[in-house]
């Protein structure tokens, strides 16, 4: 009963959060400078022409009226029609979402692996110059923002030593004819190694740019957490059993040290997805972020609303997933 109440409370909170986001976004983008109709006004437009264009895009009503019309439509699954692309917003954003999700998850995987490895290494060789080396690497990775990593990677691995593709998600010569937009996942499942490698060729640089700052955060937090755990009684016991230090870290200390890192990583994932906006633009990657910038430039109000709402749903979903995972991994919460 308590669990059910907790779930219902959480669901209600989620609904309130999303409604709040919808209201804020709707109001903010309408009071923000820039009128989409002014941007498409023909040189000789008369007042009647302007009024006609406003009516055509549903911008002739009050903001309150526009909001409730939009909300009513959203509740029926209709997010409106993009002003610039002139297609249903839901279709556009759902087509682009998989590209962003795959990039984010690849970046997250790299960050977790890299950050975890650094933390492991620093713990294994704690209080030695190796730990100082890891701290320096962390410091560098953290102090450089993701878009600068992107530029540096383009110069290094795109131009000076051209290993990876600079722009796009897949080579134009490859037409995978997949049934979903989850190209990476589907190419792996279908064992289309050519497509998988081509996708990685395009995705590794943007994913690395997104991953490096997060990897440093993970490494730093996990290292601190591991250090504390290494002084616990059960770890001492493991040592006295004669296990190697690496074995003790990986088998005994790691799981308990993981919990605080997991929570932070979940929160960081939302920042990482936010970071895709600039990184996707830099690498001309065909995801939601790149689309969002065009939508803002064009003052495509329905598309901006759709993208922001989708991002909000994603963030809420990720936080929910992290909470659930934390419950599963934390025995005190699981049994209490």
């Amino acid at each position: 009963m308590t669990a059910l109440r907790a779930i219902l409370t959480r669901a209600l909170m989620t609904a309130i959060t999303l409604f709040g986001v919808a209201v804020i976004v709707f109001v903010v983008i309408r009071v923000a400078p820039g009128d989409p109709i002014a941007m498409m006004l023909p040189p000789g437009a008369s007042d009647d022409d302007i009024a006609h264009l406003r009516a055509l895009y549903g911008l002739d009503k009050s903001i309150v009226q526009q909001f409730f019309i939009w909300l009513g439509n959203v509740l029926q699954g209709d997010f409106g029609t993009s002003i610039s692309i002139r297609q249903p917003v839901s279709r556009i954003v759902l087509n682009r979402l998989p590209a962003t999700l795959e990039l984010s998850l690849l970046a997250m995987t790299i960050a977790v692996l890299f950050g975890g490895a650094l933390a492991f290494f620093a713990t294994r060789f704690r209080e030695t110059p190796a730990e100082t080396g890891v701290d320096i690497i962390n410091g560098i990775a953290l102090s450089v923002p993701d878009f600068l990593w992107g530029l540096a990677l383009i110069l290094l691995l795109g131009v000076a030593w051209p290993v990876f593709e600079i722009s796009g998600r897949i080579s134009p010569s490859l037409d995978p004819q997949f049934s979903t937009q989850f190209y990476l996942l589907e190419s792996i499942l279908r064992l289309r190694l050519d497509v998988t490698l081509d996708l990685l060729d395009h995705m590794l640089m943007p994913a690395l740019a997104l991953a490096l700052p997060l990897a440093a955060v993970i490494a730093q937090l996990l290292k601190v957490s591991l250090k504390e755990t290494m002084n616990q009684d059960y770890v001492m016991l493991a040592r006295t059993k004669g296990f190697s230090e690496s074995h003790v870290i990986s088998h005994d200390a790691f799981r308990n040290a993981l919990l605080p890192t997991l929570t932070l990583t979940g929160i960081q994932l939302t920042f990482l997805i936010g970071g895709t906006v600039i990184i996707e633009r830099l690498f001309s990657y065909e995801g939601l972020g790149n689309l969002a910038i065009d939508a803002v430039i064009n003052r495509d109000l329905p598309l901006i609303q759709g993208i922001v709402l989708l991002f909000a749903i994603l963030f809420v979903g990720i936080n929910l997933a992290v909470d659930l995972l934390y419950t599963v991994l934390n025995p005190r919460l699981r049994h209490g």
């Binding site: 110069l155 131009v159 051209p162 600079i166 690498f283 001309s284």
Partner: peptide, 20 residues
């Protein structure tokens, strides 16, 4: 002909610099 959409000017420079 392939038209790549590369709105970022520095990325366009990298495109020609790398021969892509």
């Amino acid at each position: 002909v392939i038209i790549k959409f590369v709105p970022d000017a520095s990325s366009r420079v990298a495109e020609i610099d790398s021969g892509k």
